[in-house]
């Protein structure tokens, strides 16, 4: 990051302190508009319902946490259960994605085999494929396997590297690891599995971590798949639970609804706080969608 003075190009008219101040004013204004809805949501979760209506203030007059207690037990299954379900699914998804995608990525990046270019093209093609095209036969398949109302339809595809995006991300990273390291390892008698395990994975930790964090967030946020596969409230994820809450009591209990919305955002926010650099670099280098 350069300061204003350092960025100054000789020979161009110097933008004054005023210009820089005005830019900051605009940016702070934009930031405020961006973040205000979130602050309002947090504030509203701490207000009694009577205070939410017709109040744009983000400072509750009498902040209290009663909406959290009310919302948590707002449905016949508690949000604690939904939270646990989502966490279990998200963690399994992370493990599945990191394992299966790194295996495939290693093959694409380093191994030489017949049909490599063909399969690589197929992999890139699936990146563009809208999931709706596979949705219904997949549903029929999982239904016939008796997997509806279990977590399997949400988790097993991750172990089969269905999120090709992460393969792509890891291929890009693996290609940047110097080949001399593999060659040296081969001289020492290592085979492809040892190279994968002892050299590629340890060196690719940034890429694996990026994939892990995005896997977690996307799985946590996923709404469509849990919506169609989970019908029994005991198996609901947080997102589906929240939607049910909107439809049942959300009209009357705004603060309870906001409280649970805030809880649902906490895991993503925690990821953001801890892995901000990783997320931003991941997007900048591979151009992820979110």
């Amino acid at each position: 990051m350069k300061s204003d003075a350092a960025a100054h190009v000789p020979g161009t008219p110097r933008r004054g302190a005023f210009g820089s101040l005005a830019t900051h004013a605009v940016l702070i204004g934009v930031s405020l508009v961006m973040v205000y809805p979130l602050l309002w949501m947090i504030a509203s979760s701490l207000k009694p319902d009577s205070e939410i209506f017709n109040s744009a203030s983000i400072f509750p007059a009498h902040p209290n946490l009663s909406a959290y207690a009310r919302g948590w037990y707002g449905l016949k299954v508690s949000f604690g259960k939904f939270f646990t379900n989502s966490a279990v699914i998200a963690v399994l998804a992370v493990i599945g994605n990191v394992m299966s995608c790194s295996l495939a990525a290693y093959a694409f990046a380093r191994l030489r085999f017949r049909g490599r270019n063909f399969w690589f093209a197929i992999m890139l093609g699936t990146l563009m494929l809208p999931y709706h095209v596979t949705l219904i036969p997949q549903y029929v398949l999982f239904l016939n396997l008796g997997w509806v109302d279990t977590f399997l339809p949400l988790v097993v595809p991750k172990f089969l590297a269905a999120d090709a995006f992460f393969i792509f991300l890891m291929v890009q990273f693996f290609r940047g690891i110097p080949r001399e390291l593999d060659e040296a390892a081969i001289m020492d008698g290592c085979g492809p599995w040892r190279i994968y395990w002892k050299i590629m994975l340890p060196l690719a930790v940034p890429a694996l971590a990026t994939a892990a964090v995005f896997s977690f967030i996307w799985t946590w946020d996923d709404f469509f798949a849990p919506l169609i596969y989970l019908n029994d409230m005991e198996s609901y994820t947080f997102q589906v639970g929240l939607r049910t809450f909107v439809d049942s009591s959300g009209q009357s209990d705004w603060s309870g609804l906001f409280a649970m919305s805030v809880v649902g955002l906490v895991p993503i926010f925690v990821m953001f706080i801890f892995f901000q650099r990783l997320l931003i670099d991941g997007i900048a280098t591979t151009g992820m969608k979110r």
Binding site: V35, L38, R243, S261
Partner: peptide
């Protein structure tokens, strides 16, 4: 931050 949170049901509720 909004990009990251935006896919959530919570944001649609908001």
């Amino acid at each position: 931050l909004p990009s990251l949170l935006g896919g959530s049901v919570a944001i649609a509720v908001l």
